[in-house]
Amino acid sequence: MKRLSVFILCLVFSSLSGAHEHTSPFGPRDFKHIENKWTAVVAAYEPEIAAIDAAFAQMEDAQITETLYFKGVKYQLGEYKGEPIVVLSTGISITNAAMTVQMALDYFPIDTLVMMGIAGATDPQFTPGDIAVPERWYFHDESVYVNPKPNARNEYELPSFYMAQLEQYTQRNVTNPHAPRYNNFGFIHPNEVAVVREGWDSRRRMPYFSATPRLLTMTKRALETIPTITMPSGKPIQVAVGGNGVTGSVFVDNADYRNWLREVFNADVAEMESAAVAQVCFVNDIDWLIIRSVSDLAGGQKGKNEGNVFDAIASGTGTKLLLGLLDEIVTENE
């Protein structure tokens, strides 16, 4: 009887391995049959999601109709001017962002994701309340930590694998103007995440992830149609569409490291989720764009970081642009 059971299991797994992906009983749900797919509206933590919820609450044509929880994560389902949406907060950090967004894409028929949140400015032109909408997102702390060489000032014992990768990166810089110009920050030597997606036979190192061009175009169009975004004082803010953002597992509040981010990545803003969200969207072939409103100067300020003072204000300015972008998405889908 035991041998018969093993034989049956072998037949089952053999048939599964030869089956096409869409016939497998395992894996995420298949939403290909749904024509009117959803837009995911994403933030990272409480002040950001509160600003979005407050804006929706003041609109007659934006409603949350159902709230679901999966594995403790809250997903709000509803409509924005007829467009089906799911609103979620990822939680702070790259791990939370990757987990919650992948869950959302597995559970709901999403084809577009727009994220809004706060960030620290690494470009000196930005002040709190200003908005950056980067075209490219990089991981800044995917790194190799190494020992110094004995009796050699500012030299390090680099592993052989990393030296080979640096050579590849140097060659790539000739053809890719947006690739990072890597140098070390003390014992920290930057590296890149290796990514795989459907159709690739092996992992490839990705220097950055690029936002969907049509959503960048929509954002520019939204800026031409919505009222000028201002601070509570009435001061107009500046909005920059394009450029670079960086993501890491650390809260950046160091002037030297801030300068290094600018030098290596030409970064405008730094935060803790966006590149992870971008990677998940890239692997799942989801259109995406991320809006970041400046709450602090990532160490460029004098004295203590007072980003918490501007969290709600920055979330408010970012939400105004988010609503303008959602309007453009609705118009395109009509």
Rank of each mutant, 00 (worst) to 15 (best):
M1E: 12
K2E: 11
L4K: 08
I8C: 10
S15H: 12
A19R: 03
H22L: 11
P25D: 04
G27N: 09
R29N: 07
A40G: 09
E46V: 15
E46Y: 05
E46K: 14
A50M: 12
A51C: 11
A57D: 09
E66N: 00
F70G: 01
E79P: 00
E79C: 02
L88K: 02
L88M: 15
S93W: 04
A97E: 13
A98W: 06
T100D: 04
M103P: 02
F108W: 02
P109I: 03
M116P: 01
P124R: 07
F126R: 10
G129F: 09
P134C: 14
R136P: 05
V144T: 08
P148C: 00
L158N: 05
Q165T: 05
R172W: 11
V174T: 14
N176V: 11
F185P: 04
I188W: 14
P190C: 14
V193Q: 14
R197Y: 06
R204C: 06
P213N: 13
R214I: 07
K220V: 06
R221F: 03
T228G: 01
K235Y: 07
A240N: 10
S249F: 03
D253N: 15
A255T: 09
W260I: 07
F265Q: 08
D287F: 03
D287Y: 00
A298Y: 07
E306W: 00
E306R: 10
F310N: 13
T317K: 05
T319W: 07
L321Y: 03
L323W: 14
L326N: 04
